[in-house]
Design a protein around this nucleic acid. Sequence first.
DNA 1: GTTGAAATTAGTACGAA
DNA 2: TTCGTACTAATTTCAAC
Lengths: 216, 216
Amino acid sequence: MVEMSPHGGRPADPSGRIGIGLELDNTHLKILEVLRENGRISVAALAERVGISRANAYTRFEALRADGAIKRFTAEIDHVRAGLGITALVFVTVRQQMWKQFRAELARMPEVEYCAITTGQHDAMIQVRMADVAAVHRLVTERMANIPAVKATETVFILDEVLRRPYVLPTDRDGGRDAGRTGRRPAAPEPAEVPLGKMRFVGAAEGRAALRKEGG
Amino acid sequence: MVEMSPHGGRPADPSGRIGIGLELDNTHLKILEVLRENGRISVAALAERVGISRANAYTRFEALRADGAIKRFTAEIDHVRAGLGITALVFVTVRQQMWKQFRAELARMPEVEYCAITTGQHDAMIQVRMADVAAVHRLVTERMANIPAVKATETVFILDEVLRRPYVLPTDRDGGRDAGRTGRRPAAPEPAEVPLGKMRFVGAAEGRAALRKEGG
DNA sequence: GTTGAAATTAGTACGAA
DNA sequence: TTCGTACTAATTTCAAC
């Protein structure tokens, strides 16, 4: 239910092909745009907002679902109201050769809302929601620390969630500042006229690539 | 549309009261549980799955919506299929007294999917989805670096998203390992029999509390 | 890919337990 | 409060164009 396949890949379609399954045109993107804002809109209303016929909307809606472009529909819950007022990020350093075990343990922790494997100093970032700070402390020092795969953790608390968009789409760029600013080719950005050296990019730590394969 | 009020707070209800608006009982939580798994389920089907009458389900559904416990319904899009194959985390150090400006700039960046203010070495964490690595590089070195409020950034790339749950609920704990393990009081956890020192908790950097007030 | 008409389902209102 | 029912409105499906 919550497990994502490695690399966010989709299950191979019946033909065994792995490439793009469905060419998304502008109409598809418009549909996704509406749906991520209002996941409960009727297909009839959706058709009207996108400017296509009902039957067409049904066809495309089904196609997007079947193709996996729409992964699921969900309700966003106010976690504070639901009794989980504390959010924390746990950055985890995972012991080599133990990714599989780490993933298995993760699946057994329902309080984990999100987990991503990253480049940089740490190997994974986990977001958890808990009732209070003490519960986070207990989770980290009692449960996570007892996972052999976990070499070390670093925990920070989230003080405020400034924004959360349901999902970003390519069309979002049209509303952005970059869109049509100049005719500059995207592949050849001009040298930045900015204070450099303050912007760090952190690559994978030693052996990360190998680790991922093992854990797949 | 995407702006969250500070601290995830909800708008004050007409009475001016800020406290808990709606006492969530087990039935409410069950409804939320179903809804976060299937945001498009009909209220009739919801009533059946929860085990209440349709009328009751409509009443509670509306109450949860009005109360804000359900923030919105949304479709989860496969960002890879949608053409945004690269996900990155940008950790931002924000200049004092400039939070308001930082937030304003954020609102103008549609490629930002999530932003949270955190304790620890950095001040904020931003998650972005882009078409390719070069686009991330451009975003950070051209746009973010040009924001005066941004003192420094550190960027890591997400290699794999292992899991994402729609939203964690308190009832999730029942399925967890902790539930009813012992009768131990939650407020007094026994000293952990674990390798300590590997689990770091990182508090707020200097002046963070003051910064937050200014930016609210 | 569109339109329109039939069948089904959703949403509302109300009285009773 | 919750339930059950009847009523109204809307949606989905299916057909022909």
